[in-house]
Design a binder for these strands. Sequence first.
DNA 1: TGGGTGACCATAG
DNA 2: ACTATGGCCACCC
Length: 113
Amino acid sequence: MEKTQGDFFLNVFAVVRLIPKGRVTNYGAIAKYLGAGRSSRMVGWAMNASHTQKKKVPAHRVVNRNGELTGKHHFPSPFMMQELLEKEGIKVENDKIIDFKKCFWDPMKELEV
DNA sequence: TGGGTGACCATAG
DNA sequence: ACTATGGCCACCC
């Protein structure tokens, strides 16, 4: 339905929306979960399209493998991402997530129990 | 149809 | 420690 874009994009959005509050994930995990392998770039690109999606996509919960807010620069306001993360209870410093391992949410692990 | 691109990740120097 | 390069795979023109 409404395949405005590749199912991949929608799939990425779906996974991102499933991210619980106070948790974060990385592009590689999503890419792997989708079976895209290391095409994590596509995931990031999909998030870029998330801006066009009507539904709200918590892109601020998606960070790179290092736990850095790489995509913050793509937000309406680069500070919004950090603000949102802190609002969810995630400590962020220097555009990096503290205790990233604790907040890390792996779709493969959590969804594929 | 083909080429360029990307909010990445991993390895090498 | 940082920089450079390759690979990856889907989307857009």
